[in-house]
Design a protein around this nucleic acid. Sequence first.
DNA 1: TTTT
DNA 2: TTTT
Lengths: 146, 146, 146, 146
Amino acid sequence: MSGVNKVILVGHLGKDPEVRHLEGGATVVNFTLATTENYTKDGRKVEQTEWHNVVMWRGLADVAAKFLQKGKLVYIEGKLRTRSYDDREGNKRYVTEIVAENFNMLGRRSDNDTVNQPGAANQGSAKAEEHIADFNSGNAEDDLPF
Amino acid sequence: MSGVNKVILVGHLGKDPEVRHLEGGATVVNFTLATTENYTKDGRKVEQTEWHNVVMWRGLADVAAKFLQKGKLVYIEGKLRTRSYDDREGNKRYVTEIVAENFNMLGRRSDNDTVNQPGAANQGSAKAEEHIADFNSGNAEDDLPF
Amino acid sequence: MSGVNKVILVGHLGKDPEVRHLEGGATVVNFTLATTENYTKDGRKVEQTEWHNVVMWRGLADVAAKFLQKGKLVYIEGKLRTRSYDDREGNKRYVTEIVAENFNMLGRRSDNDTVNQPGAANQGSAKAEEHIADFNSGNAEDDLPF
Amino acid sequence: MSGVNKVILVGHLGKDPEVRHLEGGATVVNFTLATTENYTKDGRKVEQTEWHNVVMWRGLADVAAKFLQKGKLVYIEGKLRTRSYDDREGNKRYVTEIVAENFNMLGRRSDNDTVNQPGAANQGSAKAEEHIADFNSGNAEDDLPF
DNA sequence: TTTT
DNA sequence: TTTT
Protein backbone atom coordinates (compact mmCIF):
# COMPACT_ATOMS: atom_id res chain seq x y z
CA MET A 1 0.00 0.00 0.00
CA SER A 2 1.26 3.43 0.90
CA GLY A 3 4.93 3.77 0.22
CA VAL A 4 7.62 6.28 -0.57
CA ASN A 5 11.02 5.26 -1.89
CA LYS A 6 13.03 8.30 -2.87
CA VAL A 7 16.71 9.01 -3.31
CA ILE A 8 18.31 12.38 -3.94
CA LEU A 9 21.96 12.57 -4.88
CA VAL A 10 24.35 15.29 -5.92
CA GLY A 11 27.73 14.01 -7.01
CA HIS A 12 30.21 13.39 -9.78
CA LEU A 13 30.17 10.57 -12.33
CA GLY A 14 32.96 8.10 -11.74
CA LYS A 15 33.02 7.03 -15.38
CA ASP A 16 31.26 7.67 -18.66
CA PRO A 17 27.81 6.14 -18.80
CA GLU A 18 27.79 2.60 -20.16
CA VAL A 19 25.07 2.40 -22.79
CA ARG A 20 23.13 -0.69 -23.85
CA HIS A 21 20.21 -1.10 -26.22
CA LEU A 22 17.75 -3.82 -25.34
CA GLU A 23 15.99 -5.99 -27.90
CA GLY A 24 12.78 -4.00 -27.57
CA GLY A 25 14.75 -0.91 -28.51
CA ALA A 26 14.90 0.65 -25.06
CA THR A 27 18.13 2.26 -23.96
CA VAL A 28 19.66 1.49 -20.57
CA VAL A 29 22.51 3.41 -19.09
CA ASN A 30 24.67 2.57 -16.07
CA PHE A 31 27.27 4.58 -14.23
CA THR A 32 28.68 5.13 -10.79
CA LEU A 33 28.24 8.34 -8.90
CA ALA A 34 30.40 9.59 -6.03
CA THR A 35 28.91 11.65 -3.25
CA THR A 36 31.47 13.09 -0.90
CA GLU A 37 30.93 14.21 2.63
CA ASN A 38 33.36 16.35 4.59
CA TYR A 39 33.43 16.54 8.31
CA THR A 40 35.87 17.08 11.12
CA LYS A 41 36.54 14.31 13.56
CA ASP A 42 38.79 14.69 16.55
CA GLY A 43 39.85 17.98 15.06
CA ARG A 44 40.92 16.48 11.76
CA LYS A 45 39.24 16.90 8.40
CA VAL A 46 37.82 13.74 7.00
CA GLU A 47 36.56 13.29 3.47
CA GLN A 48 34.34 10.29 2.93
CA THR A 49 33.15 9.18 -0.48
CA GLU A 50 30.22 6.92 -1.13
CA TRP A 51 29.79 5.24 -4.52
CA HIS A 52 26.35 4.66 -5.97
CA ASN A 53 25.23 2.48 -8.87
CA VAL A 54 22.89 4.51 -11.04
CA VAL A 55 20.62 3.11 -13.76
CA MET A 56 18.57 5.08 -16.25
CA TRP A 57 16.01 3.78 -18.70
CA ARG A 58 14.53 4.78 -22.06
CA GLY A 59 14.27 8.47 -22.82
CA LEU A 60 16.16 9.47 -19.72
CA ALA A 61 18.91 7.04 -20.71
CA ASP A 62 19.06 8.57 -24.17
CA VAL A 63 19.63 12.02 -22.77
CA ALA A 64 22.18 10.70 -20.28
CA ALA A 65 24.03 8.86 -23.03
CA LYS A 66 24.33 12.09 -24.99
CA PHE A 67 25.25 14.51 -22.27
CA LEU A 68 26.63 12.89 -19.16
CA GLN A 69 30.33 12.12 -18.87
CA LYS A 70 32.88 11.09 -16.33
CA GLY A 71 33.47 13.89 -13.87
CA LYS A 72 30.25 15.84 -14.44
CA LEU A 73 28.37 17.11 -11.41
CA VAL A 74 24.73 16.04 -11.43
CA TYR A 75 21.61 16.08 -9.31
CA ILE A 76 19.75 12.79 -9.48
CA GLU A 77 16.36 11.82 -8.16
CA GLY A 78 15.24 8.23 -8.19
CA LYS A 79 14.33 5.20 -6.17
CA LEU A 80 16.17 2.32 -4.58
CA ARG A 81 15.98 -1.12 -6.06
CA THR A 82 17.83 -4.18 -4.85
CA ARG A 83 18.06 -6.94 -7.41
CA SER A 84 19.66 -10.35 -7.28
CA TYR A 85 21.91 -12.04 -9.78
CA ASP A 86 24.02 -15.18 -9.83
CA ASP A 87 27.75 -14.75 -9.63
CA ARG A 88 30.26 -16.88 -11.59
CA GLU A 89 30.10 -19.59 -8.91
CA GLY A 90 26.34 -19.72 -9.17
CA ASN A 91 25.74 -18.03 -5.84
CA LYS A 92 22.97 -15.53 -5.41
CA ARG A 93 24.25 -11.99 -4.96
CA TYR A 94 22.49 -8.69 -4.41
CA VAL A 95 23.14 -5.19 -5.68
CA THR A 96 21.33 -2.06 -4.70
CA GLU A 97 20.93 0.48 -7.46
CA ILE A 98 19.40 3.89 -7.81
CA VAL A 99 16.86 3.80 -10.62
CA ALA A 100 16.90 7.43 -11.73
CA GLU A 101 13.63 9.15 -12.52
CA ASN A 102 15.06 12.54 -13.23
CA PHE A 103 18.40 14.30 -13.46
CA ASN A 104 19.86 17.74 -13.76
CA MET A 105 23.31 18.79 -14.80
CA LEU A 106 24.88 21.20 -12.36
CA GLY A 107 27.81 23.54 -12.66
CA ARG A 108 28.71 25.88 -15.40
CA ARG A 109 27.16 25.44 -18.78
CA SER A 110 30.61 25.35 -20.31
CA ASP A 111 31.35 22.35 -18.12
CA ASN A 112 28.55 20.53 -19.77
CA ASP A 113 29.54 20.90 -23.38
CA THR A 114 30.42 17.73 -25.12
CA VAL A 115 32.35 19.75 -27.60
CA ASN A 116 33.50 23.23 -27.13
CA GLN A 117 34.44 24.42 -30.54
CA PRO A 118 33.87 27.94 -31.82
CA GLY A 119 30.52 28.03 -33.51
CA ALA A 120 29.29 24.88 -31.83
CA ALA A 121 29.93 25.96 -28.30
CA ASN A 122 27.16 25.59 -25.76
CA GLN A 123 24.91 23.84 -28.21
CA GLY A 124 25.43 20.60 -26.43
CA SER A 125 24.13 21.48 -23.06
CA ALA A 126 21.47 23.78 -24.39
CA LYS A 127 19.95 20.83 -26.12
CA ALA A 128 20.53 18.72 -23.09
CA GLU A 129 18.59 21.15 -21.01
CA GLU A 130 15.77 21.22 -23.46
CA HIS A 131 15.57 17.46 -23.48
CA ILE A 132 15.87 17.13 -19.77
CA ALA A 133 13.09 19.64 -19.53
CA ASP A 134 10.87 17.17 -21.32
CA PHE A 135 11.43 14.69 -18.56
CA ASN A 136 11.13 17.18 -15.81
CA SER A 137 8.02 18.72 -17.24
CA GLY A 138 4.44 17.82 -16.53
CA ASN A 139 4.20 21.43 -15.44
CA ALA A 140 2.41 22.76 -18.42
CA GLU A 141 -0.28 24.13 -16.18
CA ASP A 142 1.13 27.56 -16.72
CA ASP A 143 -1.07 28.24 -19.67
CA LEU A 144 -4.11 28.23 -17.48
CA PRO A 145 -5.96 31.46 -16.73
CA PHE A 146 -5.08 31.51 -13.10
CA MET B 1 19.68 26.80 -16.07
CA SER B 2 20.22 24.11 -13.50
CA GLY B 3 17.61 24.15 -10.79
CA VAL B 4 15.86 22.00 -8.23
CA ASN B 5 12.68 23.11 -6.48
CA LYS B 6 11.25 20.30 -4.42
CA VAL B 7 8.90 20.12 -1.46
CA ILE B 8 8.06 17.03 0.56
CA LEU B 9 5.23 17.17 3.07
CA VAL B 10 3.47 14.71 5.32
CA GLY B 11 0.45 16.15 7.08
CA HIS B 12 -3.30 16.29 7.51
CA LEU B 13 -5.77 18.12 5.29
CA GLY B 14 -7.33 21.06 7.07
CA LYS B 15 -10.43 20.96 4.89
CA ASP B 16 -11.94 19.06 2.01
CA PRO B 17 -10.34 19.85 -1.34
CA GLU B 18 -12.01 22.73 -3.15
CA VAL B 19 -12.59 21.65 -6.73
CA ARG B 20 -12.83 23.89 -9.80
CA HIS B 21 -13.14 23.06 -13.47
CA LEU B 22 -11.47 25.46 -15.86
CA GLU B 23 -12.88 26.41 -19.25
CA GLY B 24 -10.44 24.13 -21.04
CA GLY B 25 -11.81 21.26 -18.96
CA ALA B 26 -8.87 20.89 -16.60
CA THR B 27 -9.59 20.26 -12.95
CA VAL B 28 -7.88 22.28 -10.23
CA VAL B 29 -8.01 21.41 -6.58
CA ASN B 30 -6.93 23.50 -3.58
CA PHE B 31 -6.62 22.62 0.07
CA THR B 32 -4.58 23.42 3.12
CA LEU B 33 -2.29 20.93 4.76
CA ALA B 34 -1.03 21.02 8.34
CA THR B 35 2.43 19.72 9.19
CA THR B 36 3.05 19.53 12.89
CA GLU B 37 6.39 19.46 14.60
CA ASN B 38 6.90 18.45 18.22
CA TYR B 39 9.90 19.42 20.25
CA THR B 40 10.83 20.15 23.81
CA LYS B 41 11.97 23.62 24.72
CA ASP B 42 13.14 24.54 28.19
CA GLY B 43 11.86 21.17 29.28
CA ARG B 44 8.35 21.77 27.98
CA LYS B 45 6.69 20.08 25.05
CA VAL B 46 5.87 22.39 22.20
CA GLU B 47 3.68 21.55 19.24
CA GLN B 48 4.05 23.82 16.26
CA THR B 49 1.84 23.61 13.22
CA GLU B 50 2.62 25.03 9.82
CA TRP B 51 -0.15 25.49 7.25
CA HIS B 52 0.56 24.96 3.56
CA ASN B 53 -1.50 25.91 0.50
CA VAL B 54 -1.56 22.96 -1.84
CA VAL B 55 -2.69 23.04 -5.49
CA MET B 56 -3.20 20.08 -7.77
CA TRP B 57 -3.92 20.10 -11.50
CA ARG B 58 -5.60 17.87 -14.07
CA GLY B 59 -5.44 14.14 -13.50
CA LEU B 60 -3.88 14.49 -10.09
CA ALA B 61 -6.64 16.92 -9.15
CA ASP B 62 -9.26 14.44 -10.31
CA VAL B 63 -7.89 11.75 -8.05
CA ALA B 64 -7.58 14.18 -5.16
CA ALA B 65 -11.15 15.36 -5.65
CA LYS B 66 -12.34 11.78 -5.38
CA PHE B 67 -10.31 10.52 -2.49
CA LEU B 68 -8.86 13.23 -0.31
CA GLN B 69 -10.86 14.66 2.55
CA LYS B 70 -10.46 16.84 5.58
CA GLY B 71 -8.38 15.09 8.19
CA LYS B 72 -6.66 12.55 5.93
CA LEU B 73 -2.93 11.96 6.38
CA VAL B 74 -1.09 12.37 3.11
CA TYR B 75 2.43 12.45 1.65
CA ILE B 76 2.82 15.17 -0.98
CA GLU B 77 5.67 15.92 -3.32
CA GLY B 78 5.71 19.08 -5.36
CA LYS B 79 7.36 22.40 -6.02
CA LEU B 80 7.11 25.88 -4.64
CA ARG B 81 5.45 28.59 -6.65
CA THR B 82 4.86 32.14 -5.50
CA ARG B 83 2.23 33.97 -7.48
CA SER B 84 0.87 37.47 -7.21
CA TYR B 85 -2.70 38.65 -7.21
CA ASP B 86 -4.46 41.94 -6.56
CA ASP B 87 -6.36 42.24 -3.31
CA ARG B 88 -9.71 44.06 -3.01
CA GLU B 89 -7.92 47.39 -2.60
CA GLY B 90 -5.98 46.80 -5.80
CA ASN B 91 -2.69 46.14 -4.04
CA LYS B 92 -0.34 43.47 -5.24
CA ARG B 93 -0.17 40.52 -2.87
CA TYR B 94 1.82 37.30 -2.96
CA VAL B 95 1.01 33.76 -1.96
CA THR B 96 3.33 30.80 -1.93
CA GLU B 97 1.77 27.52 -2.86
CA ILE B 98 2.91 23.94 -3.20
CA VAL B 99 2.09 22.73 -6.69
CA ALA B 100 1.79 19.00 -6.08
CA GLU B 101 3.29 16.59 -8.58
CA ASN B 102 2.46 13.45 -6.71
CA PHE B 103 0.66 12.29 -3.59
CA ASN B 104 0.16 9.23 -1.49
CA MET B 105 -2.50 8.50 1.08
CA LEU B 106 -1.03 7.26 4.34
CA GLY B 107 -2.55 5.45 7.26
CA ARG B 108 -4.95 2.62 7.32
CA ARG B 109 -6.99 1.80 4.28
CA SER B 110 -10.14 1.97 6.35
CA ASP B 111 -9.27 5.58 7.09
CA ASN B 112 -9.32 6.27 3.41
CA ASP B 113 -12.72 4.93 2.52
CA THR B 114 -15.20 7.51 1.43
CA VAL B 115 -17.96 5.15 2.32
CA ASN B 116 -17.65 2.09 4.40
CA GLN B 117 -20.79 0.17 3.73
CA PRO B 118 -20.97 -3.59 3.44
CA GLY B 119 -20.50 -4.48 -0.18
CA ALA B 120 -18.97 -1.16 -1.08
CA ALA B 121 -16.25 -1.22 1.51
CA ASN B 122 -12.70 -0.52 0.45
CA GLN B 123 -13.67 0.09 -3.11
CA GLY B 124 -12.94 3.75 -2.72
CA SER B 125 -9.35 3.68 -1.78
CA ALA B 126 -8.56 0.65 -3.86
CA LYS B 127 -9.49 2.65 -6.91
CA ALA B 128 -7.62 5.60 -5.53
CA GLU B 129 -4.51 3.55 -5.30
CA GLU B 130 -4.86 2.27 -8.79
CA HIS B 131 -5.32 5.78 -10.11
CA ILE B 132 -2.56 7.23 -8.03
CA ALA B 133 -0.38 4.46 -9.31
CA ASP B 134 -0.90 5.85 -12.78
CA PHE B 135 0.64 9.10 -11.68
CA ASN B 136 3.38 7.52 -9.69
CA SER B 137 4.30 5.12 -12.42
CA GLY B 138 6.78 5.59 -15.20
CA ASN B 139 8.36 2.48 -13.75
CA ALA B 140 7.24 0.04 -16.33
CA GLU B 141 10.82 -0.89 -16.97
CA ASP B 142 10.22 -4.05 -15.03
CA ASP B 143 9.23 -6.01 -18.07
CA LEU B 144 12.67 -5.72 -19.46
CA PRO B 145 14.95 -8.76 -19.63
CA PHE B 146 17.39 -7.55 -17.05
CA MET C 1 33.76 18.14 -1.96
CA SER C 2 30.20 18.98 -2.75
CA GLY C 3 27.86 16.09 -2.21
CA VAL C 4 24.31 15.17 -1.31
CA ASN C 5 23.31 11.65 -0.32
CA LYS C 6 19.74 11.56 0.88
CA VAL C 7 17.10 8.87 1.18
CA ILE C 8 13.46 9.37 2.08
CA LEU C 9 11.30 6.35 2.82
CA VAL C 10 7.77 5.76 4.03
CA GLY C 11 7.01 2.14 4.74
CA HIS C 12 6.27 -0.60 7.25
CA LEU C 13 8.77 -2.41 9.44
CA GLY C 14 9.16 -6.03 8.41
CA LYS C 15 10.28 -7.06 11.89
CA ASP C 16 10.96 -5.66 15.31
CA PRO C 17 14.18 -3.67 15.49
CA GLU C 18 17.18 -5.77 16.44
CA VAL C 19 19.04 -3.96 19.19
CA ARG C 20 22.75 -4.20 20.00
CA HIS C 21 24.87 -2.33 22.48
CA LEU C 22 28.46 -1.70 21.44
CA GLU C 23 31.39 -1.79 23.83
CA GLY C 24 31.56 2.01 23.94
CA GLY C 25 27.95 2.00 25.12
CA ALA C 26 26.37 3.15 21.87
CA THR C 27 23.14 1.52 20.76
CA VAL C 28 22.70 0.24 17.22
CA VAL C 29 19.43 -0.85 15.80
CA ASN C 30 18.71 -2.74 12.56
CA PHE C 31 15.47 -3.53 10.82
CA THR C 32 14.01 -4.01 7.39
CA LEU C 33 11.49 -1.65 5.91
CA ALA C 34 9.06 -2.41 3.10
CA THR C 35 8.05 0.30 0.66
CA THR C 36 5.26 -0.74 -1.64
CA GLU C 37 4.41 0.77 -4.96
CA ASN C 38 1.13 0.19 -6.78
CA TYR C 39 0.66 0.70 -10.46
CA THR C 40 -1.35 -0.65 -13.32
CA LYS C 41 0.40 -2.44 -16.13
CA ASP C 42 -1.40 -3.70 -19.18
CA GLY C 43 -4.60 -2.95 -17.34
CA ARG C 44 -3.74 -5.07 -14.33
CA LYS C 45 -2.88 -3.87 -10.86
CA VAL C 46 0.62 -4.63 -9.77
CA GLU C 47 1.96 -4.29 -6.27
CA GLN C 48 5.71 -4.18 -5.96
CA THR C 49 7.53 -4.21 -2.65
CA GLU C 50 11.09 -3.14 -2.09
CA TRP C 51 12.93 -4.14 1.09
CA HIS C 52 15.42 -1.77 2.70
CA ASN C 53 18.02 -2.41 5.40
CA VAL C 54 17.81 0.39 7.92
CA VAL C 55 20.40 1.16 10.60
CA MET C 56 20.08 3.64 13.44
CA TRP C 57 22.77 4.74 15.86
CA ARG C 58 22.98 6.10 19.38
CA GLY C 59 20.15 8.27 20.58
CA LEU C 60 18.07 7.64 17.53
CA ALA C 61 18.57 3.91 18.03
CA ASP C 62 17.44 4.22 21.65
CA VAL C 63 14.18 5.83 20.62
CA ALA C 64 13.68 3.30 17.84
CA ALA C 65 14.32 0.43 20.25
CA LYS C 66 11.62 1.75 22.54
CA PHE C 67 8.93 2.64 20.07
CA LEU C 68 9.28 0.99 16.71
CA GLN C 69 7.84 -2.45 16.10
CA LYS C 70 7.08 -4.82 13.30
CA GLY C 71 4.27 -3.49 11.15
CA LYS C 72 4.52 0.19 12.15
CA LEU C 73 4.32 2.80 9.41
CA VAL C 74 7.26 5.16 9.55
CA TYR C 75 8.88 8.04 7.65
CA ILE C 76 12.66 7.75 7.55
CA GLU C 77 15.28 10.15 6.33
CA GLY C 78 18.88 9.09 6.00
CA LYS C 79 21.76 8.39 3.70
CA LEU C 80 23.00 5.47 1.67
CA ARG C 81 26.04 3.56 2.76
CA THR C 82 27.44 0.48 1.10
CA ARG C 83 29.75 -1.53 3.30
CA SER C 84 31.67 -4.70 2.68
CA TYR C 85 31.97 -7.79 4.83
CA ASP C 86 33.39 -11.25 4.38
CA ASP C 87 30.92 -14.09 4.00
CA ARG C 88 31.42 -17.55 5.54
CA GLU C 89 33.58 -18.61 2.58
CA GLY C 90 35.81 -15.62 3.07
CA ASN C 91 34.53 -13.79 -0.01
CA LYS C 92 33.99 -10.07 0.03
CA ARG C 93 30.33 -9.15 -0.10
CA TYR C 94 28.53 -5.80 -0.15
CA VAL C 95 25.35 -4.56 1.47
CA THR C 96 23.72 -1.22 0.97
CA GLU C 97 22.02 0.19 4.03
CA ILE C 98 20.09 3.30 4.87
CA VAL C 99 21.75 5.01 7.81
CA ALA C 100 18.82 6.86 9.32
CA GLU C 101 19.29 10.41 10.52
CA ASN C 102 15.74 11.02 11.51
CA PHE C 103 12.42 9.23 11.75
CA ASN C 104 8.78 9.89 12.34
CA MET C 105 6.02 7.50 13.30
CA LEU C 106 3.00 7.86 11.06
CA GLY C 107 -0.54 6.73 11.47
CA ARG C 108 -2.77 6.90 14.43
CA ARG C 109 -1.34 7.37 17.87
CA SER C 110 -3.19 4.31 19.07
CA ASP C 111 -1.26 2.32 16.50
CA ASN C 112 1.91 3.42 18.15
CA ASP C 113 1.25 2.41 21.70
CA THR C 114 3.47 -0.27 23.05
CA VAL C 115 0.96 -0.98 25.71
CA ASN C 116 -2.59 0.12 25.73
CA GLN C 117 -3.77 -0.51 29.24
CA PRO C 118 -6.12 1.76 31.14
CA GLY C 119 -4.01 4.21 33.04
CA ALA C 120 -0.93 3.63 30.94
CA ALA C 121 -2.49 4.29 27.59
CA ASN C 122 -0.78 6.65 25.19
CA GLN C 123 2.17 7.16 27.46
CA GLY C 124 4.35 5.21 25.12
CA SER C 125 4.00 7.23 22.01
CA ALA C 126 3.69 10.51 23.83
CA LYS C 127 7.14 9.96 25.18
CA ALA C 128 8.28 8.75 21.84
CA GLU C 129 7.19 11.97 20.26
CA GLU C 130 8.92 14.02 22.86
CA HIS C 131 12.13 12.09 22.36
CA ILE C 132 11.88 12.09 18.63
CA ALA C 133 11.35 15.79 18.86
CA ASP C 134 14.78 16.05 20.41
CA PHE C 135 16.28 14.49 17.34
CA ASN C 136 14.17 16.43 14.92
CA SER C 137 14.81 19.70 16.65
CA GLY C 138 17.62 22.11 16.05
CA ASN C 139 14.83 24.59 15.50
CA ALA C 140 15.19 26.48 18.68
CA GLU C 141 15.27 29.71 16.74
CA ASP C 142 11.77 30.35 17.90
CA ASP C 143 12.86 32.19 20.98
CA LEU C 144 14.30 34.96 18.90
CA PRO C 145 12.57 38.34 18.76
CA PHE C 146 11.63 38.06 15.13
CA MET D 1 1.54 14.93 15.59
CA SER D 2 3.29 13.22 12.74
CA GLY D 3 4.58 15.70 10.24
CA VAL D 4 7.19 16.25 7.58
CA ASN D 5 7.97 19.68 6.18
CA LYS D 6 10.97 19.54 3.90
CA VAL D 7 12.27 21.70 1.08
CA ILE D 8 15.16 20.91 -1.23
CA LEU D 9 16.49 23.60 -3.53
CA VAL D 10 19.38 23.92 -5.93
CA GLY D 11 19.80 27.41 -7.33
CA HIS D 12 21.79 30.60 -7.48
CA LEU D 13 21.82 33.39 -4.92
CA GLY D 14 20.14 36.52 -6.25
CA LYS D 15 22.16 38.76 -3.95
CA ASP D 16 24.76 38.64 -1.23
CA PRO D 17 23.39 37.38 2.08
CA GLU D 18 22.09 40.14 4.30
CA VAL D 19 23.53 39.61 7.76
CA ARG D 20 22.01 40.70 11.08
CA HIS D 21 23.11 40.07 14.64
CA LEU D 22 20.35 39.74 17.18
CA GLU D 23 20.58 41.03 20.74
CA GLY D 24 21.22 37.55 22.10
CA GLY D 25 24.21 37.33 19.79
CA ALA D 26 22.69 34.98 17.23
CA THR D 27 23.37 35.64 13.57
CA VAL D 28 20.55 35.67 11.03
CA VAL D 29 21.11 35.73 7.32
CA ASN D 30 18.60 36.36 4.52
CA PHE D 31 18.92 36.03 0.78
CA THR D 32 16.91 35.16 -2.29
CA LEU D 33 17.56 32.08 -4.31
CA ALA D 34 16.55 31.48 -7.93
CA THR D 35 15.62 28.03 -9.14
CA THR D 36 15.18 27.82 -12.87
CA GLU D 37 13.23 25.24 -14.76
CA ASN D 38 13.51 24.66 -18.51
CA TYR D 39 10.87 23.00 -20.56
CA THR D 40 9.49 23.05 -24.06
CA LYS D 41 5.96 24.17 -24.63
CA ASP D 42 4.31 24.11 -28.02
CA GLY D 43 7.74 23.41 -29.42
CA ARG D 44 9.35 26.47 -27.88
CA LYS D 45 11.86 26.55 -25.07
CA VAL D 46 10.62 28.19 -21.93
CA GLU D 47 12.77 29.15 -18.97
CA GLN D 48 10.89 29.80 -15.76
CA THR D 49 12.52 31.15 -12.65
CA GLU D 50 11.11 30.93 -9.17
CA TRP D 51 12.47 33.13 -6.39
CA HIS D 52 12.71 31.84 -2.83
CA ASN D 53 13.28 33.72 0.42
CA VAL D 54 15.89 31.85 2.41
CA VAL D 55 16.68 32.39 6.11
CA MET D 56 19.55 30.89 8.06
CA TRP D 57 20.19 31.05 11.79
CA ARG D 58 23.13 30.89 14.19
CA GLY D 59 26.08 28.75 13.16
CA LEU D 60 24.69 28.05 9.74
CA ALA D 61 24.20 31.79 9.25
CA ASP D 62 27.80 32.43 10.28
CA VAL D 63 29.09 30.06 7.63
CA ALA D 64 26.73 31.49 5.03
CA ALA D 65 27.82 35.03 5.86
CA LYS D 66 31.43 34.06 5.26
CA PHE D 67 31.13 32.00 2.14
CA LEU D 68 27.93 32.57 0.20
CA GLN D 69 27.71 35.35 -2.34
CA LYS D 70 25.50 36.58 -5.12
CA GLY D 71 25.61 34.19 -8.04
CA LYS D 72 26.85 31.10 -6.18
CA LEU D 73 25.20 27.78 -6.91
CA VAL D 74 24.02 26.11 -3.73
CA TYR D 75 22.04 23.10 -2.49
CA ILE D 76 19.75 23.99 0.40
CA GLU D 77 17.67 21.80 2.64
CA GLY D 78 15.18 23.29 5.02
CA LYS D 79 11.56 23.72 5.95
CA LEU D 80 8.74 26.03 5.00
CA ARG D 81 7.57 28.68 7.38
CA THR D 82 4.92 31.27 6.70
CA ARG D 83 5.03 34.24 9.03
CA SER D 84 2.92 37.33 9.23
CA TYR D 85 3.98 40.93 9.59
CA ASP D 86 2.24 44.28 9.41
CA ASP D 87 2.90 46.39 6.34
CA ARG D 88 3.28 50.21 6.44
CA GLU D 89 -0.49 50.63 6.32
CA GLY D 90 -0.92 48.34 9.30
CA ASN D 91 -2.35 45.47 7.28
CA LYS D 92 -1.42 41.93 8.04
CA ARG D 93 0.75 40.39 5.33
CA TYR D 94 2.26 36.93 4.95
CA VAL D 95 5.59 35.74 3.61
CA THR D 96 6.68 32.19 3.11
CA GLU D 97 10.33 31.54 3.76
CA ILE D 98 12.62 28.56 3.61
CA VAL D 99 14.31 28.15 6.97
CA ALA D 100 17.51 26.40 5.95
CA GLU D 101 18.78 23.51 8.06
CA ASN D 102 21.71 22.65 5.89
CA PHE D 103 23.50 23.84 2.79
CA ASN D 104 26.18 22.80 0.37
CA MET D 105 28.12 24.86 -2.10
CA LEU D 106 28.11 23.35 -5.55
CA GLY D 107 30.26 23.93 -8.59
CA ARG D 108 33.94 24.26 -8.87
CA ARG D 109 35.98 25.01 -5.82
CA SER D 110 37.49 28.01 -7.56
CA ASP D 111 34.01 29.40 -7.94
CA ASN D 112 33.67 29.39 -4.23
CA ASP D 113 36.69 31.44 -3.30
CA THR D 114 35.94 34.68 -1.62
CA VAL D 115 39.27 35.95 -2.74
CA ASN D 116 41.36 34.45 -5.41
CA GLN D 117 44.76 35.95 -4.89
CA PRO D 118 48.01 34.09 -5.35
CA GLY D 119 48.95 32.56 -2.06
CA ALA D 120 45.47 32.84 -0.61
CA ALA D 121 43.67 30.95 -3.32
CA ASN D 122 41.29 28.19 -2.36
CA GLN D 123 41.63 28.87 1.31
CA GLY D 124 38.19 30.33 1.42
CA SER D 125 36.16 27.43 0.28
CA ALA D 126 38.36 24.86 1.89
CA LYS D 127 37.50 26.37 5.21
CA ALA D 128 33.92 26.71 4.18
CA GLU D 129 33.73 23.05 3.49
CA GLU D 130 35.26 22.19 6.80
CA HIS D 131 32.79 24.38 8.62
CA ILE D 132 29.84 23.21 6.63
CA ALA D 133 30.93 19.71 7.44
CA ASP D 134 30.34 20.51 11.08
CA PHE D 135 26.74 21.23 10.35
CA ASN D 136 26.30 18.33 8.03
CA SER D 137 27.89 15.90 10.39
CA GLY D 138 26.22 13.94 13.13
CA ASN D 139 27.69 10.95 11.34
CA ALA D 140 30.47 10.21 13.68
CA GLU D 141 29.35 6.64 13.93
CA ASP D 142 32.23 5.69 11.73
CA ASP D 143 34.50 5.06 14.65
CA LEU D 144 32.45 2.12 15.71
CA PRO D 145 33.77 -1.39 15.32
CA PHE D 146 31.32 -2.42 12.69
C1' DT E 1 9.52 -10.18 6.45
C1' DT E 2 5.53 -5.31 6.15
C1' DT E 3 1.07 -3.19 4.71
C1' DT E 4 -3.62 -2.72 2.01
C1' DT F 1 -8.52 24.67 9.55
C1' DT F 2 -5.65 19.12 10.61
C1' DT F 3 -3.84 15.50 13.75
C1' DT F 4 -2.23 13.27 18.44
